[in-house]
């Protein structure tokens, strides 16, 4: 008994220490975002000094200098279509590989899963050149130079391509848990393939779709890499990548960047709080095969 109690105490202390360790940088960021730069730069202990003045100036400046309303608008123009498209396409692939068995079933699923393992950085050079060579019609919104590169459509497409691997994997595992008899019954009643997908399988997949939608929203919202590489025009950057505009030529106010970053994480935190259950089930959905 004594030893298990001791183990429990050790475990508690360990977990507490780890939690503090993890929280420290975040707390440091929150505190410094309320402090003027002059204070952290002149105190010999810098960011570890006790705060004298707390102010909202950094948040005001970050909002104005970062041109945040504009960048948020651009973000939602990218994230909303990207999430809808990725769920639509990957649910169709998942439907096909989970409900019908054909020759390349496993191969196709493996291809999609393997795509998850590919580091995005490895394809950037060819992708950039391909994007440079694909023209966009002039009426396409945010098309800029008239090619896929630099356009928001190009950004949406690459998110759809990169996220659909994971979504297909999760959705196909989930769909495999739905009884096959449902489809058989529908077929007997004369339902077309589309109807089986849209009216039978999709409504039943709603929990998985909800979980994935919240996860995908957070992932695409937090994307930095693709936007930085593919968008050249300052005003067309989504919010996460636009944060670097708070850095100057010779001088970067770290407290201002901390304040800007806090503003930018607010939507993700709100969505997490509102959809906590979906978030957590999203991380485990499809993990156990029925």
């Amino acid at each position: 008994m004594i030893s298990s109690r001791r183990n429990q105490i050790i475990a508690q202390v360990f977990l507490f220490a780890m939690a503090v360790l993890w929280m420290l940088p975040i707390l440091g960021m929150i505190i410094s975002s309320f402090r003027p730069y002059a204070e952290t730069s002149t105190d010999p202990n810098g960011f570890f000094s006790w705060p004298d003045t707390l102010t909202l100036d950094n948040f005001r400046n970050a909002w104005a200098r970062g041109n945040m309303p504009r960048h948020w608008f651009v973000t939602f123009l990218v994230v909303i279509p990207a999430v809808i498209l990725v769920l639509f396409f990957s649910s169709m692939v998942a439907f096909a590989v989970s409900r019908y068995s054909w020759k390349f079933n496993i191969a196709l699923l493996m291809l999609f899963t393997a795509g998850n393992l590919l580091p995005p950085q490895s394809i950037i050079q060819p992708l950039f050149q391909i994007y440079n060579r694909i023209p966009l019609p002039e009426f396409a919104p945010y098309s800029n130079s008239g090619e896929l590169r630099g356009s928001l459509i190009g950004l949406i497409l690459i998110h759809v391509a990169f996220q659909s691997g994971f979504c297909t994997f999760v959705l196909s595992n989930y769909m495999k848990t739905l009884p096959k008899e449902l489809n058989e019954a529908a077929m007997v009643d004369g339902a077309s393939l589309w109807r089986q997908y849209w009216q039978i399988v999709m409504p039943l997949t709603r929990p998985a779709l909800g979980a994935l939608a919240t996860l995908e929203f957070a992932w695409i919202y937090n994307d930095y890499f693709w936007a930085v590489v593919l968008v050249q025009k300052g005003n067309d950057l989504p919010i996460t990548s636009s944060l670097r505009n708070l850095s100057g030529e010779f001088f970067t106010d770290d407290n201002l960047v901390a304040a800007g970053s806090l503003i930018v994480v607010i939507p993700t935190i709100l969505i997490y709080l509102a959809l906590r259950r979906q978030f957590i089930s999203g991380l485990s959905v499809g993990a156990s095969k029925g």
Binding site: N67, F128, N132, N144, S145, R149, G150, V228, Q232, K233, G234, N235, D236, L237, R244, N245, L246, S247, G248, E249
Partner: peptide
């Protein structure tokens, strides 16, 4: 006139792609 601002260092590092893009 529309001003498109990028932070100084990123702008400098990306100038080749910015020039190739010809967006501005």
């Amino acid at each position: 006139v529309v001003i498109n601002t990028l932070d100084h260092n990123t702008y400098q590092e990306n100038i080749t792609t910015i020039l190739q893009a010809q967006d501005d």
